[in-house]
Design a protein around this nucleic acid. Structure first.
Lengths: 152, 152
DNA sequence: ATCGAGAATGGAATCGTTCTGAATTGGGTA
DNA sequence: TACCCAATTCAGAACGATTCCATTCTCGAT
């Protein structure tokens, strides 16, 4: 949850050189409460609260906002792409193998890229993405194996 | 490239409690030279060299081998799932943003999970997956922006 | 108020993967 | 060695997420 108030959304869009439109404001507003949402969840949320939006518009908006640097896209294996408003800092994620819940984790090291591989095989590296896998507090206590148990 | 000779494939399958079938041996053989292949590439390679195999059989085999621990599945954002024979050790990957090439990177730290997040929010973590993003040697020299430039 | 570029819409298409059910086959057993 | 069953393969359909397309709409500069 970034401390971005509704009123700051419009200036934020303008500052990023983007035109201010209803879908964009709506998506951005939904994003500020409810992190790590998928395009689909976002579409439902926007429709529920603020009227109508086409699925494709959601993708367009997410694409534009991501390209503009207002949103960050993450794609944990086995899940649809998710988006978050925390950009610019170097944080990572913990993903629950059972329920798919995602939580932010502050960077263990410091400045990005937070790690340099011992040997990069000649690659020029600009980002180190770290994903921790495990069980969230809720799913730890669930004794019976979760129905839709993730394979990995 | 794991030092697994063709002759060791069959015992390896048996040891894993799997029945030895032509598709399994063929897939496993292809995997030993040609790392980080997708299901599709694998299907083509097997058909080219060893005859016929259905796409679904490739998925079945990959699933079985992965579950048995003979293969590891990796899913870099924006790419189809890829498989590798290096299992058990704790290594990571560098992915080229331009061409999608993947190279192994030895773990920076040591034993898995190689990193412990400062605060895991109550998660019990069993794996830390690290993916470095950048440009491979070939794509660094390519002055003109790659056609199918990856978005992220 | 006008106008053009950028954005939204709706529909179809694509890609990778999974599901289903029938046919085949490995390999333990009689 | 022949037999049999469960494991495996096959074929085709279904699926979810995402992208592509052409048309219509609208923001915001003039």
């Amino acid at each position: 949850m970034t401390p971005t108030g509704r009123e700051e959304l419009i200036p934020a869009l303008r500052a990023a050189g983007l035109r201010v439109t209803a879908p964009r404001v709506a998506v951005l507003a939904e994003m500020t409460d409810g992190e790590h949402m998928t395009a689909d969840q976002l579409a439902l949320a926007v429709r529920d609260r603020l009227g109508t939006i086409s699925t494709q518009a959601v993708y367009d908006v997410l694409g534009a906002l991501t390209k503009a640097g207002l949103l960050r896209r993450i794609e944990p294996a086995g899940s649809a792409a998710r988006y978050e408003t925390r950009v610019g800092d170097n944080h990572h994620h913990v993903v629950c193998r059972a329920c798919g819940a995602i939580t932010d984790v502050d960077c263990v090291v410091g400045e990005p890229p937070c790690l340099s591989p011992a040997s990069a095989s000649g690659f020029v590296i600009d980002e180190a993405e770290v994903t921790f896998w495990g069980l969230c507090p809720d799913c730890q206590t669930t004794s019976k194996p979760t129905e839709k148990e993730r394979v990995r």
